[in-house]
Design a protein around this nucleic acid. Structure first.
Lengths: 143, 143
DNA sequence: AGTAATAGTTACCTATGATAATTAAATTAA
DNA sequence: TTAATTTAATTATCATAGGTAACTATTACT
């Protein structure tokens, strides 16, 4: 499997650039989209929820959420625990979510054109397995 | 294929973090490793060669090469065209390359543990196809 | 010879994320 | 029930990586 990382990583910049171009219409970027995606699919959430999901530190999420608040895409709702900041999509946020979701799904199909269905499915299932290996085999690997 | 990008991208940060940890022993990072890898496998090269390979702008490569020169991992060799800066690995660079190559290959095997051989091979071959689609289908896609 | 293009550099800016310290609120323990 | 501890979020500061625009030096074109 020598060369696997190169193959994996050489997709990253072209892909993230394309996604950011697509999202820039709404003054968004993929990092902001992740937050929208999370609260759309998990319901109103705290910053810690999001931070845990993406293995990103809390101050990073604070910044993303502040930006989304400026854009009026998310808003805070009251919760019992007054330490927590529970955020959800605004109506505007829901609209923008739908439009972006469609464009992203179109792009997902587009980048898969000409690739056999079974190849797509295998890759689709293999990537999370690799992620698990990276995250959970760390302890037992000393080198 | 909805959700493909998420699956692809959620590997990125854990992987690049792990690679950077591994390389930090030699004061390297993956971005510096890319340059070493390129000139090891393509022979002495110019900054433009490397810039084209990784779709990164020239100033970025200038910075990487300067850092590698500081570390005495690459050196400049004279060429006919005096505009060009042709760089190659030093002896120290060759040594470090070999050690890193081994560690990276070990990690490549490690993250693939427990995944069937045919799944590995399919993923290995599918990723470059997706990259081609992203890079070369840009023109015909207006959305 | 004069103009274009090319290789590399410099200066400056952006995006993204990390760490450490701080505030406020809730939980646990004495 | 007060005191200590933990938790959620924030602020300030720093690091990494990359981009654009403007510039110099050299080579290629015409």
């Amino acid at each position: 499997m020598e060369g696997f990382f190169q193959r994996y990583l050489s997709l990253y910049r072209p892909l993230i650039t394309k996604l950011n171009e697509l999202l820039s219409t709404y003054e968004l970027s993929y990092s902001l989209w992740q937050v929208m995606f999370y609260i759309k699919n998990h319901g109103p959430s705290t910053l810690v929820d999001i931070s845990n999901q993406y293995q990103v530190e809390k101050p990073t999420i604070t910044r993303r959420v502040h930006r989304l608040e400026e854009l009026e895409i998310v808003k805070q709702i009251p919760g019992k625990d007054r330490r927590e900041k529970i955020i959800q999509l605004t109506e505007k946020g829901e609209e923008i979510y739908k439009e972006c979701r469609k464009k992203i799904t179109d792009l997902e199909h587009s980048v898969m054109e000409g690739i056999h269905s079974d190849e797509k499915i295998t890759t689709f299932h293999t990537l999370p397995k690799i992620k698990e290996n990276i995250l959970h085999r760390e302890e037992n690997k000393s080198d």
